[in-house]
Design a protein around this nucleic acid. Structure first.
Length: 266
DNA sequence: ATGGTGGGCAACCCA
């Protein structure tokens, strides 16, 4: 089958419910992984989502912040055997097993801490938390021997020179500092390949996020690639397509992130 | 060098 998996930092699921119709129309995904749902589980809008046509859901949310959700047309079972990252119980990760006819596929949906403004773990504990988080996830995935696994999400780090509009100007801006980019690359190398860069050479600019604090986001185009799709090497020959739906940045009341979708022949 | 905008949720926290 052709399996399409989309990832999107929706920045409030309840506020942007109507935009999910546009996402489905544009990308026709089988699975949607969301971040920053900002809704506690007891208030998850299951009824409002029902007409969208994704009967299988798995979500982990909390009041006000963070939160992840997986909406699927394919039957799934929850697979939350991962540790409580940094012992914070802050709803930044959901794992599922997708019951694909050719065999199960493991799927991880992550929302990595943004890390605050100051790139110093002592002066800014949020930055320290971010570095600790990606060290823990890296170690956990290294210790497992993964196949048929997809990892997606808002990883809040733009690892490559051309994942930001100006490598030089962002080297000490949180999201592109060497400790972050090196940490993210080490996590990637714990058993994955970068599915987006499989389709677009490292020398080409690639963004998934544009700040709200920019009047003309398209004109100035000061973007960053904060959202990622990784697959285990056995799935690399199955990669059939990748779309960054940049137009979503102009939807009414947009998220500052745009959806990314990958197509796998599995 | 600074401040710019947006969401949650009721004062600021977070991005």
């Amino acid at each position: 089958m052709t399996l399409r998996i989309a990832t999107w930092n929706i920045n409030s699921l309840r506020l942007r419910l109507p935009l999910l119709d546009r996402l489905v129309e544009a990308l026709n995904p089988d699975v949607i992984c969301l971040q920053e749902t900002k809704v506690p589980d007891e208030l998850f809008p299951a009824e409002a989502l029902a007409p969208l046509g994704f009967p299988h859901v798995h979500y982990k949310g909390m009041k006000g912040y963070n939160g992840v959700a997986i909406l699927s047309k394919i039957p799934l079972t929850s697979h939350d055997d991962a540790p409580d990252w940094c012992a914070k119980s802050d709803c930044r990760h959901a794992g599922v097993i997708l019951s694909v006819p050719s065999g199960p596929i493991e799927l991880h949906d992550f929302y990595v801490p943004a890390g605050g403004d100051i790139p110093d773990p002592v002066a800014n504990p949020k930055y320290g938390h971010k570095l600790d988080f990606i060290a823990e996830t890296r170690n956990w995935f290294t210790a497992r021997n993964l196949t048929r696994t997809v990892l997606v999400g808002d990883l809040n780090i733009a690892p490559l020179e051309h994942d930001v509009w100006s490598h030089k100007q962002l080297l000490d801006v949180v999201s592109h500092t060497p400790p972050e980019t090196e940490g993210l690359t080490a996590w990637l190398n714990a058993g994955f390949t970068d599915a987006m860069r499989h389709f677009v050479p490292d020398t080409e600019k690639l963004y998934t996020w544009w700040s709200y604090r920019n009047r003309d986001w398209r004109g100035s185009n000061r973007g960053r690639r904060l959202d990622h799709i990784w697959v285990t090497p056995d799935l690399k020959p199955k990669l059939a397509g990748m779309t960054i739906h940049t137009d979503a940045r102009d939807w009414p009341q947009p998220s500052d992130h745009v959806p990314v979708c990958v197509e796998l022949k599995v």
